[in-house]
């Protein structure tokens, strides 16, 4: 028992490394969110586009990034795309991770958005068109604002997955929280150090859950959760 307490006490000794790793994890998460959430919208619209090449391109992108493992994509961008295609071996692992994660999550989010847009009743389009509104105004003024509320739970789910997926970047030797702690675990032969990142990830995802709840309330017109009737 004393041994366990002592081992847990070791967490305090790795606080500096822990903070550095946590910062990388948070950076990766925030930047991916900032890029993926808006970038997925044109892809969602494009995958329903009437122009076939645009539609095919969007669908191919979604297919590739949803259909292969994220870890494989990380390796591919880190060891091949950046050094050999872009001739940019100097680009940092963090940048490559953010780009790969954004592309990967963008594909998932695009499909969520597309589903959300398609779930809006066609009567909403008809009402807008019958007033003389154009396609763009209808989409951005009438359809998408209604979609936001519907996709929020799914988007929040993706964001929670993203928090945990950040641990994958240790495979391209980016010193995120997981990699940093893993190093300390082997250096100090103390596997109980993993309790610290576990608590960190739990708090992180809990805060996201709170944020989702707040946003769901905000986007529900009467301030009640799930009060919207069809």
């Amino acid at each position: 028992m004393n041994g366990i307490i002592e081992a847990l006490g070791g967490i305090w000794n790795i606080r500096d490394a822990f903070a550095e790793g946590a910062l990388v994890t948070i950076q990766l998460f925030v930047l991916t969110m900032i890029f993926a959430i808006p970038a997925a919208l044109p892809v969602a619209l494009g995958s329903n586009c009437k122009i076939p090449p645009v539609r095919w391109l969007c669908k191919a992108y979604i297919w590739i990034f949803r259909g292969t493992p994220l870890m494989l994509q990380l390796f591919f961008f880190y060891y091949f795309v950046f050094p050999f295609i872009f001739h940019a071996p100097q680009v940092s692992a963090l940048t490559i991770a953010v780009i790969t994660f954004s592309l990967n999550y963008g594909a998932y989010l695009a499909e969520i958005y597309r589903g959300g847009i398609e779930s809006i009743h066609k009567g909403q389009y008809e009402a807008a068109y019958s007033l003389g509104l154009g396609k763009t105004t209808t989409m951005f003024g009438v359809i998408i604002p209604q979609t936001v509320k519907r996709v929020l739970p799914s988007v929040s789910n993706e964001m929670i997955t993203l928090v945990k997926d950040t641990a994958l970047v240790s495979c391209i030797s980016l010193s995120d929280l997981f990699r940093v702690v893993t190093k300390q675990v082997s250096a100090r032969s103390n596997p109980l150090l993993y309790v610290a990142p576990a608590i960190f990830y739990l708090i992180f995802t809990f805060l996201l859950t709170l944020l989702t709840r707040f946003l769901e309330k905000k986007f529900s017109v009467t301030g009640e959760k799930g009060s919207e009737k069809k």
């Binding site: 009567g123 909403q124 019958s130 209604q146 017109v221």
Partner: peptide, 13 residues
């Protein structure tokens, strides 16, 4: 030409 629908189709948001 103003159109009134059977199911109203008001903008809920």
């Amino acid at each position: 030409t103003g159109m009134i629908f059977q199911h109203f189709n008001l903008f809920p948001h």
